[in-house]
Design a protein around this nucleic acid. Sequence first.
DNA 1: ATTCCACGGGAAAGCATGGACC
DNA 2: GGTCCATGCTTTCCCGTGGAAT
Length: 342
Amino acid sequence: MITNSEVLQADFQPAEILHRHDQINYLSEVLEPITDNQRVDGAFIHGPTGVGKTHTTQFLLERLEASSPEIETTLIDCWANYQYGATLKRVLEGYDIFRRRGEPKDDLIAKLKAEVDHPYVVVLDEVDQLEDDRLLKPLHEMPHITLLLIANEREDLYSRLDSRVHSRLAGYPAVEFKKYTQDELVSILRKRTEAATRGEVISEPHLEVIADRVGGDARFAIAILKNALEHADRRGGERVRKEDIESVLGDAREELLRATISKLTADQRVLYQILVEGGEQSIGEIYEQYEQRVRDPVVKRTVTGYLQKMEHYDIVELHGQKRGRTYEVTTTQLMDFEDVLE
DNA sequence: ATTCCACGGGAAAGCATGGACC
DNA sequence: GGTCCATGCTTTCCCGTGGAAT
């Protein structure tokens, strides 16, 4: 049934962005002066998960680079690169600046300042995930750098900023990406279906059923679509039925969760499994089980760091401070760990 | 061309401090 | 006061790399 599965992957970048004309036009206008080599400080992009913030920005970057050979761009996932040094490294790499061995870290900002002499658009995706905001001020101040900041909530970011950085960035024009409406989601799903399959494989009302379940999140919607198509395929059907959709809701959710889990190390997955099986627990209880399950366990201090990181990933949440603290998985979804933990 | 060595960076371990609870 | 905990800081370990030596 599926002839091109690529377009159903979560990271697939569609050639055409649907329903984001207003945002694209506005951001194009904001970025326009760059093509004339004029200074643009930056912009702020915000909205919930799965509403096309990253894809739209990526699309704009490509268009911008195509418009002039002078313009460099980079998109940095601050979720994965949440530490100061990691982010800075990506910023440098994006401009093809690579660090010589032995070069002191402190000079990197100076180096960046010295080397960047034509327009460089730096996108910080999930910028509210950054460990600290030291990097924002110097980047903001560099004349050739344009900062595009992407976050869920405008306030989430600003509340965490140093007040001096805050006042500078507060002047950035802001673009809001709202949740997709029912109709918008249906047309997005329709388009993806056409690209991924041949013939009429799913009806309009069934696309609406999917759109109903996702709270405006296109990523989730597409994950459901993919799984529903596969499910229909497996039972030998020609068209997706409502049961196909209903029965893969959990799978689709799990697929998104699995993508996060795959970023974890083997030890971290064991910890996750302990939390799934044992529910809410203290570090002492967790560590005791962990020690028994792993060949050579890392020290408790390190486990604390792991759990911290998993909280960062939003798959574990912690309750309480200090002594009484407990850890718990954020999702009640049961997973098939035979697969995940091979 | 291959081997050897020194070095930097990142991750983990180890240590210390201070808070919360009994 | 003893135990359990989080967290910051320093030290140690390991790995990749690039340049020198063979």
